[in-house]
């Protein structure tokens, strides 16, 4: 350090390699990619219907298996991404769409659409879900401004309480208008009904991913807090707004098409962060990939465990997720840097 003149001579040859530490195409990434593709292949060929033996097997393959695998990949990426963006925006590791009430809000949105329109189209339902999850998430963030210690457990507790209130409201409305069945089946997210013609809106998630990638550096910076962001000349409130909009888009689309998928947004970003830190731009491919892998693995399990029946994938996710949630909590308590 400081022999006054700052050493510009650190060596040009070292400079060439110094900043390239976070490159994407590493061996682990290739391995993960192959694993996810393999899971995709397994997913395509798992199921009760014998697509190789039956005469209309080929047709079945394209109307149900391919849509199912595609929607698994898309929702997995969407939920993992939504969780990560949410964690950056709130500066809290334990936050994701199910621990902030976002999912419950989109459920309420769906319910309202069912109430207002007799036989709502999927587009209508999706719009309702996106709109409500945006309002709910914004509300939650406003509430958060009143919480001093952003990294504390208080944050997900507030979120879950808010979520509980909203889902109670939904249930109440459901009882009032005799629509409880709609809600109950919605709360158990499952891919068993996915088929051609019913899932195509999920492709919008590709667009959301591109948008997140464009905003990646700003979102990472938002994760350093309002003061650092402002000092570096970034409009903090605007990026929070944009981040919330992106989260709501992803969650709303998934909520309308598939349903409630708990904990995916919590598990995946936390695991990625452990190995690769939180630089969003270089991590986004990893987060999407692991999201896809996790949900496909859970879905394959859900199909084979009690064959020929299916366990809703949300149950498996919920079980795995809560275990991981607890593990993260325990790890946080042990690390000395985290203030209590």
């Amino acid at each position: 350090m400081a022999k006054n003149a700052a050493p510009q001579t650190a060596g040009f040859e070292s400079f060439q390699t110094r900043h390239l530490s976070n490159k994407l195409w590493t061996w682990p990434f290739v391995a993960a990619l192959i694993a996810v593709l393999a899971l995709g292949a397994i997913s395509l060929f798992t199921g009760v219907y014998d697509i190789q033996g039956q005469a209309d097997g080929r047709e079945m393959f394209f109307t149900t298996r391919v849509p199912r695998t595609a929607s698994l990949m898309l929702t997995g990426a969407a939920m993992a991404m939504a969780g990560l963006v949410m964690q950056l925006v709130t500066q809290n590791r334990l936050v994701e769409p199910t621990t902030t009430g976002t999912i419950e809000w989109s459920g309420l949105g769906l319910l309202f659409v069912y109430l207002l329109f007799p036989a709502p189209s999927l587009l209508l339902r999706m719009t309702g879900a996106i709109l409500f999850s945006f309002i709910g998430t914004m509300l939650f963030f406003l509430l958060l401004r009143r919480v001093r210690l952003r990294s504390s457990l208080i944050v997900p507790i507030i979120g879950m309480m808010l979520g509980a209130v909203i889902s109670a409201v939904s249930t109440f409305i459901g009882l009032l208008f005799q629509m409880t069945q709609n809600i109950e089946s919605w709360y158990i997210g499952s891919f068993s009904n996915v088929q051609m013609g019913r899932y195509e809106y999920l492709w919008l998630i590709v667009l959301v991913t591109v948008l997140v990638f464009i905003c990646a550096d700003r979102l990472t910076l938002a994760g350093l807090g309002q003061d650092v962001a402002t000092s570096l000349g970034m409009n903090y409130n605007r990026i929070i707004f944009v981040g919330t909009a992106l989260i709501s888009l992803a969650v709303g689309i998934v909520a309308a098409v598939i349903g409630n998928l708990p904990f995916l947004g919590l598990i995946v970003p936390n695991i990625v962060s452990m190995f690769r830190g939180d630089d969003l731009r270089s991590n986004l491919p990893w987060v999407c990939l692991l999201g896809m892998g996790t949900i496909m693995a859970c879905d394959i399990l859900s199909r084979v465990l009690i064959m020929p029946f299916e366990i809703p994938v949300s149950l498996i996710l919920g079980t795995v997720g809560s275990v991981v949630f607890i593990l993260i909590l325990l790890k946080q308590r042990r690390s000395p840097q985290t203030p209590r």
Binding site: R18, H19, S21, N22, L88, Q91, N92, R93, R150, S151, T220, G223, L224, G225, V228, S273, G277, D278, D279, P339
Partner: peptide, 11 residues
């Protein structure tokens, strides 16, 4: 300063 976001020194 306390950052929850995990970044390297260089980042």
């Amino acid at each position: 300063n306390h950052f929850v976001t995990r970044l390297t020194v260089r980042q």
